[in-house]
């Protein structure tokens, strides 16, 4: 594991206790899809706000008053940490409670937690990002970093699959990326609508449409479990080295600091050893059931 994956910005919490959330105000809310919105937040305590930094791929524990917490990746530009964003799909009790909030309302935040995408490990290499659904969110900070220092990297590719065209997140931004000549962006949907003229099918089908030079490509994968597996296995079949395939995993988390035990995945804690893992580090459990 690279030093970069293990480097952690300081964790911000309330009362200097890791399990106590710090107050954060919603300053903007963007509706992404019928059940997903992006919340821009700002820590209310200026001292904490000034200290807050995160690395691409890290997450916060976001607290809805009295309802609970959810581990949610940070999806904004790490170049500006004074504000940060979370794209939240409203599927559980905590995220439903957050869906009822408006700009000006507060949530609690603890973080950032976990490992990050190893940017320096892919310098000079081709970078291939594979995102499924809301899996684009933790990759977005990485995209900002890659584009900011575009000349440090070889070819840059994004394969992005969603259920249907209206489930696409960051649509205008994705369209902007598509127009760039130095960023190859391919999208696919499972269920097309009348206006869709792009590819149909799972995101791994898009791999046939890009040229992967296995020896010089680093791959970053984030999506549903079944997509993660299919993507990792097909890159392995294309002879991309295990150390250059990175996957971000999701697991139940209650603390973020390796104490509650819920997120254990074999000998790993997804909250502190992950959520970003190199395939090499989790190969023994990656394809096993019920680990």
């Amino acid at each position: 594991m690279s030093a970069e994956m293990t480097y952690r910005p300081p964790v911000i919490s309330g009362h200097e206790r890791p399990m106590v959330p710090a107050l954060a105000r919603i300053i903007d809310r963007t509706v992404e899809t019928s059940n997903t919105a992006t919340y821009q937040l700002e820590l209310c305590d200026p001292g904490l706000a000034a200290k807050f930094r995160f690395r691409p791929g890290q997450f916060n524990m976001v607290y809805a008053f009295g309802v609970g917490e959810a581990a949610i990746s940070i999806c904004s530009d790490p170049g500006d940490c004074t504000k940060f964003s979370h794209t939240i799909r409203h599927v559980g009790s905590v995220t439903f409670a957050i869906s009822r909030l408006s700009p000006g309302d507060c949530v609690g935040v603890r973080g950032p937690f976990g490992s990050s995408w190893p940017l320096s490990a892919c310098r000079g290499r081709d970078v291939l990002l594979v995102a499924g659904g809301i899996g684009i969110a933790p990759l977005r900070p990485m995209i900002y970093e890659l584009l900011r220092h575009r000349d440090l990297y070889g070819r840059l590719m994004l394969l992005y699959g969603v259920r249907s065209p209206r489930d696409m997140l960051y649509r205008e931004e994705v369209e902007g990326w598509m127009r760039r000549r130095d960023f190859q962006v391919l999208t696919t949907v499972d269920y097309p609508d009348a206006d869709w003229s792009g590819p149909v099918g799972v995101v791994t089908n898009l791999m046939r449409r890009v040229r992967v030079d296995a020896a010089r490509t680093s791959v970053f994968v984030c999506g549903p479990r079944i997509m993660n597996r299919a993507a990792a296995h097909s890159f392995l079949a294309h002879h991309v080295p295990q150390e250059h395939i990175f996957v971000s995993l999701e697991r139940n988390m209650r603390c973020g600091i390796g104490q509650c035990g819920h997120c254990q995945y074999g000998p790993k804690f997804v909250c502190k050893d992950g959520p970003v893992f190199s395939y090499a580090s989790i190969q023994h459990q990656f394809s096993k059931e019920e680990i």
Binding site: M19, F65, G66, G68, R254, Q259, C260, G261
Partner: peptide
């Protein structure tokens, strides 16, 4: 050492607590 973390409010909804209790895999 595994634990559960539970958040709840009083009936009025103005006061909440977080409790940690032993969990089990």
């Amino acid at each position: 050492f595994c634990s559960n973390v539970e958040d709840s409010t009083d009936l009025g909804g103005s006061r909440a607590e977080r409790w940690r209790s032993w969990g089990s895999c």
